[in-house]
Design a binder for these strands. Sequence first.
DNA 1: ACCCTGTGTAACAGTCGGTAACAGTCGCGC
DNA 2: GCGCGACTGTTACCGACTGTTACACAGGGT
Lengths: 240, 240
Amino acid sequence: MNALATHVPMPATLPAQQAMAAAGPIDIEELSRHVQVLRRKLAPGQHVYRAGQPFHAIYLVHAGFLKTCELSEDGRERVTGFRMRGDLVGVESIGLAHYACDVVALDDSEIWELPYPPVLHACLQLPELQIRLTAALAGEIRNDRAWMLALGTLTAEQRVAAFLLDMAERHLRLGFSPRHFLLRMGRADIASFLGIKHETVTRALSRLDRLQCIDVQRREIRLLDTDGLRRMAGQGETLH
Amino acid sequence: MNALATHVPMPATLPAQQAMAAAGPIDIEELSRHVQVLRRKLAPGQHVYRAGQPFHAIYLVHAGFLKTCELSEDGRERVTGFRMRGDLVGVESIGLAHYACDVVALDDSEIWELPYPPVLHACLQLPELQIRLTAALAGEIRNDRAWMLALGTLTAEQRVAAFLLDMAERHLRLGFSPRHFLLRMGRADIASFLGIKHETVTRALSRLDRLQCIDVQRREIRLLDTDGLRRMAGQGETLH
DNA sequence: ACCCTGTGTAACAGTCGGTAACAGTCGCGC
DNA sequence: GCGCGACTGTTACCGACTGTTACACAGGGT
């Protein structure tokens, strides 16, 4: 996810990780000399792509907010992540003939479409691009693994706390306030992502509010006691 | 959710897809002409690498059985996957200065060390290698996502059933019997991977045994009713 | 033989899911 | 502007599943 245009990342919520070695922003100007970059705007609810559609491009989120959904043949569905500006979308489907999941805009968004075979070809002339693409994929794996760790070892309330810290971290990285932000997704999406029920998300948020850790007004979140949240999420104290 | 068409339920039967499945194996002959491949043998319990050690290579499992462990600063630990012949190890750390997790042999194993900068460099001369490496990384992401879906939507018993089916599938792919195999890891490792407790794993296995779905003798597993297991794991019938 | 680890079983406790009723918000049409 | 209806979010209660704790047994290694 956090990819070409941004610096590194790791789920801040989880085990802190070092910055991606040498991974600075990629030069979109340079890339667009090799690849035809198409801009697409999306309204909330619109799909970037759906599972099963022919794979032909990866996407860079330029603005807005999206979710990626994994689905199984028997109807189970799960949100596997949320994407914001700078994140790459579609990399999980590289190497397949068809996309493997759904990506849906949760807010008005703009994404840049990077046709895939051309990107691969450009890598041969821009070694730097190849390094960054590979690193972005690896970062995605680490991100998923970090959440797997969290989801497998934390209680429902801890997961919610970790989720809020992750959102705060990502908002901070994009230059927004990490203490006061708006959730762009509903309780159901958060619940799906965290592997719990939406009522449980509500309950956890209510309790964190009662404990003075946060202030919740529906989708408006204020972090009042970040260290308290961190302790709760099973993470050591960090700053900010 | 959208029952609207265009969806080709793509998800593989199980979170079984291996990293290499998408693109076929890397041509080691060709690769070794560009990269110095070092063979290492490991006894059970030995580490391929530990989190924090300098990153310098990725590995191809040639024989044996290993586990990858994610750890957090506050001591939580979790098995994020098991690796067998043909699987790549270490790709999650690409782009970092240090490895991000532990990899431990669970059985006598042999791995081939592929120094990383040389691999990257070789990609420039072997486009096919780049495609395969990228596809392997993407496959790894899909594998993780598929398990995230499973762990977030299935009960403990369903997870165990899904786990057994996954092991069966992988044994089959390597040419071993998918109906009768030996688990190389202990209950604790299975539990950690599935995000449940080892007693729960035991309970689930005992119940599946009682239901005549499987036959368990400590680490020796026989699948008696594969379709029953699939139904239980929330997957449609498939063959084999 | 001994110890130590891994595995199996059981009783109990706690969290979380299931269900339902209610409240607040938003969009829509009148 | 107002009211209606659909949707989202909130809260409560109950029960099931899973975690906890404890103990016994088997197997491998020393």
